[in-house]
Design a protein around this nucleic acid. Structure first.
Lengths: 189, 189
DNA sequence: CCTACCGATCGGTAGG
DNA sequence: CCTACCGATCGGTAGG
C-alpha cells in the first residue's frame, strides 16, 4: 500500500481541520502543508468538501462495520459493550485528527451528504441501543433509560483524542480505567 | 432588566454559531436575523470576535463561580460531585445555544483571549480534580485515575443541549438518570 | 504541477 | 440606522 499524494493531502487536511476547523482552513494553507500551489491540489481532489466527505464517511463505515461485527461475534451484552468502548478508544488513538473531524466537522457537509451521514449515525446509534436494551432486559445492566445511557456513553469517550497516551502501557491503562468508570461508575460501592 | 439590541444580537449570534459554526456565520446573515443591515450591527458591537468572546467568557465565569460556591458550601465530595453535575445540566438546559458555542467554538478566539479562556478552563478543571482526589482519598469514590475520571465526566455531559427535554418532569428525570449512570455506572451490581 | 486569474463573499469603515 | 464601498481572501478554473 503506497501512500499516494491524495493520502498526504487527506492527512494534512485532517490535521488542519482539527486545529482550525473546516471553514477556517484555506486551500492555500493546505497546499503549503502538502508542498504545492493551491490549484495543483485539484489534480488530486475534486473539492474541499470532498476531503471532508472522505474522512467522515470512511470512519462512519468503520464504526458501523465494527459494531455489526461485535454484535455478531460477542454473545453477552456486557462484553459487547466493553468491545464497543474498546473500539472507540482504539480508533480514536490511531487517528486522532480524523476522529476530531468526524466528531466535530461533519456538520459542514452539504446536502445530500449530510443526510446520508446523519442516517448512518442513526443506524449506529440504533445498534448500540439494541445492545443496551437487551442487556437491561437480561439484567446484565442496571435498569436505566437506554437513550440517556447511549448518549452519555458516546459522549463520554469524546475527549480521548485530545489527551494521547505516550506508550502502549499507558494505552492499556487508559482503556482499563475508562471501562471501569463507565461500567461501574464513580462510586462503585 | 430590559433586553437591549445588543442582547438580541448576542442571542441570534449564539444560535447561528451553534447551527453553522463561527466561521460559517456571516455578519450579513446575523444582521438579517436581527432585522437590520450588516454595517448597523457595528453600532452595538465592536467585532464578530467580540460576540464570541462575550459568550465564551460569560459562561466561563459562571462555571467557575458555580464550582467555587459548591466547594465552599457542600461538605461531602460525593454531594459536591452531584452538585457539579446538576450545575452542568441546568446551565446546558437553560441556554443550549450559548453552551454549544462555549463547548465547540471557543477555539476560534484569537490571542490573547484564547489563552485567558484556556487558563480559566484549567482553573475549573483543577477545582474539579480536587473534588475527585479528595473523594478518592476519603473513600467516597472508588479508587481511580482522577484525570481520566475528570475528562470522562466533563465529556459525558456534553450531549444534553442537543436533546432538550420538553417539560420540567422530563428535566428531573434526565437529571436523576444521568446522575445515577455517572455515579454507579452501567452495571451497578 | 504551475501562473494567471475569476466572481463571490468576507468583516468592517466612511460619512451622513 | 442606512448606502456606498474598501481591501483581503476565498474556492476553484483555464490553459499550458
Amino acid at each position: 500500500m503506497k501512500k499516494t499524494t491524495r493520502d498526504t493531502i487527506r492527512e494534512k487536511a485532517a490535521n488542519l481541520f482539527m486545529e482550525k476547523g473546516f471553514y477556517a482552513t484555506s486551500m492555500r494553507e493546505l497546499a503549503r502543508d502538502v508542498g504545492m500551489e493551491a490549484p495543483s491540489l485539484y489534480n488530486h481532489i475534486r473539492s474541499k468538501e470532498d476531503i471532508l466527505k472522505e474522512i467522515c464517511f470512511d470512519y462512519a463505515h468503520r464504526y458501523l462495520e465494527g459494531i455489526t461485527f461485535i454484535r455478531k461475534t460477542v454473545s453477552s451484552n456486557r462484553e459487547q459493550l466493553r468491545a464497543v468502548i474498546d473500539m472507540h478508544i482504539e480508533i480514536a488513538l490511531n487517528d486522532p485528527a480524523s476522529i476530531t473531524v468526524f466528531n466535530d466537522e461533519w456538520k459542514h457537509l452539504k446536502v445530500p451528504a449530510i443526510s446520508d451521514f446523519r442516517s448512518m449515525r442513526k443506524t449506529y446509534e440504533n445498534q448500540l441501543l439494541e445492545i443496551l436494551k437487551e442487556g437491561i432486559k437480561r439484567r446484565e445492566f442496571a435498569h436505566m433509560d437506554p437513550d440517556i445511557a447511549m448518549y452519555t456513553l458516546l459522549s463520554s469517550i469524546k475527549w480521548i483524542h485530545h489527551k494521547l497516551p505516550k506508550n502502549s502501557t499507558d494505552r492499556v491503562y487508559m482503556k482499563n480505567t475508562l471501562e471501569r468508570i463507565l461500567l461501574y461508575g464513580f462510586i462503585q460501592k
